Simulated scan of single mutants.
Amino acid sequence: MSSHIGVRSHARREEDFRRANGLHVVIAGGVYFALVIAALVLLVNLIAG
């Protein structure tokens, strides 16, 4: 998450990619995507409701 907003160093990000398991990255991406969509739906419901 910290690399998403740009606060991790380049060296630490590269280390994360070397150690990452592809399946874990896909699962984490799916969870992150679902949370963003859920937050957007909640926000729209609060504004429109």
Rank of each mutant, 00 (worst) to 15 (best):
H4P: 02
A39H: 01
R19S: 12
E14M: 15
S3G: 08
R8C: 14
L35F: 07
A11N: 05
V26W: 11
I27K: 11
L46C: 06
L23Y: 14
V31K: 08
N21W: 06
V26M: 13
R8G: 04
A34H: 03
V41Y: 01
R18M: 13
V26Q: 11
G49V: 00
L46A: 06
L40D: 05
I5A: 01
V44W: 04
V7D: 07
G49N: 02
N45H: 08
V7T: 10
F33H: 04
V31F: 05
R13G: 09
E14C: 09
Y32F: 13
S9M: 07
V44G: 00
V36T: 09
I5R: 05
L35T: 06
A39K: 01
E14H: 12
I37V: 08
E14N: 11
I5E: 00
V31Y: 04
D16G: 10
S3L: 04
L40K: 02
A34Y: 01
Y32G: 13
L23I: 12
I37L: 03
L46S: 10
H4M: 11
Y32T: 15
G30N: 06
V26D: 12
E15K: 10
L23K: 15
N45E: 10
H4Q: 11
N21L: 09
N21P: 05
H24F: 14
A39D: 03
R19G: 12
N21G: 08
R19K: 15
R19I: 11
V44S: 01
A28R: 14
V7W: 03
L46E: 07
I37T: 05
A39C: 01
S9V: 01
G49S: 02
L35P: 02
L43F: 08
E15G: 05
G29T: 13
V7E: 09
I47K: 06
E15A: 10
A28K: 14
R12E: 15
S9F: 02
V7R: 08
V41K: 00
R12K: 13
A20I: 11
A34D: 02
S9R: 09
V26R: 13
S2D: 10
H10N: 14
L40F: 05
V7H: 06
V44A: 03
G6K: 00
L35R: 07
G6L: 01
D16R: 12
H10I: 15
A38Q: 07
